[in-house]
């Protein structure tokens, strides 16, 4: 995890330096600061710092190295609960159909989009509550 955080901090630093060089270069060459590239480079630097900071924070609260970061760990050391993963689900396909209908409707005929909105809402609710109702309720 430490290496992951450091990689993102390096990216952040790199783009941060470029975000300073780029506008200065523009001033030297053409007496003009090109805004789109300056904004993009600055926010890419923020992107790196954002993810780097979060990984750093997660690493600090970890208490120890993850088994996958240790050369002396065994396979079964990295066998805690990683989270909940649905074994299978139809809802993503329904949601994709809903999103596709909305986009298609915007492109060719708006009535399709109205149907698509309903399908999207049903799919979102169905997916969110798939493991909260009926047989799987918890």
């Amino acid at each position: 995890m430490r290496a992951n955080a450091v990689l993102f901090w390096i990216l952040s630093l790199f783009f941060g330096v470029l975000a300073v060089i780029y506008p200065l270069w523009g001033i030297l060459e053409a007496d003009y600061v090109e805004p789109a590239g300056t904004v993009a480079l600055s926010l890419t630097s923020i992107l790196g710092a954002f993810v780097g900071f979060y990984l750093q924070k997660s690493y600090n609260t970890q208490g120890a190295e993850l088994p996958e970061d240790r050369s002396d760990a065994n396979i079964d050391d990295g066998d805690p609960e990683l989270g909940f993963f649905s074994p299978w689900s139809w809802w993503p396909i329904v949601l994709a159909a809903g999103g596709a209908s909305v986009m298609l409707g915007i492109a060719v005929g708006f009535w399709i989009a109205i149907i698509g909105v309903f399908v999207t809402v049903i799919a979102l609710v169905g997916w969110t509550y798939e493991y909260y109702r009926g047989y799987f309720a918890r």
Binding site: M1, L43, I46, L47, L55, S58, Q62, A64, L82, G83
Partner: peptide, 28 residues
């Protein structure tokens, strides 16, 4: 000797990475 590790939450890390891509969306 492997200590108890407070493993980062995959949902939280995934959300942060996705928000990173949102930074670039708003950058545009």
């Amino acid at each position: 000797h492997v200590p108890v590790v407070n493993r980062p939450n995959t949902v939280a890390v995934g959300t942060i990475v996705w928000l990173g891509s949102e930074v670039m969306f708003f950058a545009g």
